[in-house]
Design a protein around this nucleic acid. Structure first.
Length: 197
DNA sequence: CTTCTAACCTAATCAGATC
DNA sequence: GATCTGATTAGGTTAGAAG
């Protein structure tokens, strides 16, 4: 494994300051994962509860990020196991961190190291069976934006990881627009502001 | 209140499987 | 090679915790 090191200084906190819209309609009553004894019902129908990293977890994530901005699935799983965080959360962390650092680089007119071997070390393509697809399709027709509870339920029913369910819905929405289902979120309205057809 | 960060989203693209 | 579809990316928004 070529541990490509980039010459950037150690990243401390990432000052992302892109927040410019704050509606404030907290109807979901989400709870923090700091108290990990919460019952499942407490997670509510919306987003998954926020899993805040401990300082040591953040250190490990940053250390890994400095070595490799685009870790493969093996690296992510190893890291996830090492610091006791679900692998999908590690993936999200890297996505957020890259986004943050990219913006910083641009703001300071510094070059971004760029992708490296993105095709190497991808997650193995998940084989979704016909019955699993049928189940997901039925769910999709009812609700194109399932919350965490619905996704967890689908994960139980299909036997697929919840993260794969989420990806399936993302891909499905992207490729089958205009189907019935729950109204999109404000985010999707905003993102779809440009007319498509 | 503002800032930070995790979660989530779209759009584009890469890539494996199948024909 | 064309098509379908799962996986990953950039770049953005949303929302709870912390300051």
């Amino acid at each position: 494994m070529p541990a490509e090191v980039h010459g950037s200084p150690p990243a401390s906190l990432c000052p992302c300051q892109s927040v410019k819209f704050r509606p404030g309609l907290p109807e979901m009553a989400l709870l923090t994962a700091l108290d990990d004894t919460l019952p499942e019902e407490a997670q509510g129908p919306g987003r998954r509860m926020i899993l805040l990293s401990t300082p040591s977890q953040s250190d490990a994530l940053r250390a890994c990020f400095e070595r490799n901005l685009y870790p493969g699935i093996a690296t992510k799983e190893e890291l996830a196991q090492g610091i006791d965080i679900p692998e999908p959360r590690v993936q999200i962390w890297f996505q957020n961190e890259r986004s943050c650092q990219l913006r910083q680089h641009r703001r300071q007119s510094r070059p971004w190291p760029g992708r490296r071997d993105p095709q190497k070390g991808r997650r193995k393509r998940t084989a979704i069976t016909g019955s699993q697809t049928a189940l997901l399709l039925r769910a999709f027709e009812k609700d194109r934006f399932p919350g965490i509870a619905a996704r967890e339920e689908l994960a139980r029913e299909t036997g697929l990881p919840e993260s794969r369910i989420q990806i399936w819905f993302q891909n499905r929405r992207a490729r089958h627009r205009g189907q019935s289902g729950r109204a999109p979120t404000q985010a999707s309205i905003r993102c779809n502001a440009a007319p498509i057809g």
